[in-house]
Design a protein around this nucleic acid. Sequence first.
DNA 1: CCTTCACCCTGCACGC
DNA 2: TGCGTGCAGGGTGAAG
Length: 272
Amino acid sequence: MPELPEVEIVTRNLNEIIKPPQKIFGWQFFRKNLRYPLPIKDLNLLVGEKILKIHRRAKYILIEFDKVVLISHLGMTGSWRPEKLNWIKRKHDHVAFEFSKNNFLVYEDPRRFGFLEVCDKSHFESRFENLGIEPLDSDLTANYLKNLFHKKQIPIKSALMDQKYIVGIGNIYASEILFRCQISPLKPSNSLNIKQLENIIQWSQSILNQAINSGGSSIDSYRNAFSEKGEFQTKHQVYGRENEKCIKCKKGLIQSQFISGRNSFWCPVCQK
DNA sequence: CCTTCACCCTGCACGC
DNA sequence: TGCGTGCAGGGTGAAG
């Protein structure tokens, strides 16, 4: 479900709900495993500790304490929601934190591709050393990408989605970005010129920001922490539109094909 | 090192 | 109605 815009929205929601600094009163779990085993001992140690800050890096939500960071990844179907005392557990609720007296934050995740991890701040940098640059970071330049993609023959769509180059862009936004740039998703990454790379950066930032401002994309299950759907799916121009007429050239039919194992959408007339 | 692929899991849409 | 199949926003590790 969630790519950068959706994770950013949930992160903002959690700040509104929790309003750090806020002491953890307790927590409970309803199964021992999500994608990985829950760090039960480490989570026990957080009881009585204060949440100092909640922010986002890549597609991870970072809940910062004095000495550790609680890392939440939503996988495909993870969500957080606030609850009050005597809340009713749903089928796929796995973990609940009581973040102030009688106020709970519940983690629900049907597919359980998400996870929770407690990371000591001293190990934090090495934990994320394989993560690439944030797409909304002003340090992201065409020259930076040119160097990064030097010798990389992989299709540009695969490169855009690879978190070791740029973080936060997933399967939906990669297709959308390349459509706006009029670049074929199959084009080898190292064949793009500076102008095209600049274009990719500008459209990445534009689309991700638009998506954040539209509440993200709700294709199926995505809801923010207040259970609200996003609107950006109504602005998708190619994703999920195979065999529809291209809205730009009005001639090409949107094509879909698996690229590096992920379904990809583009207009063969507009995108070269 | 580079790249692709299967896989983790549940729910849903679809065809028969 | 029911059953089987394939697919879904991600990330990892094994294999080529």
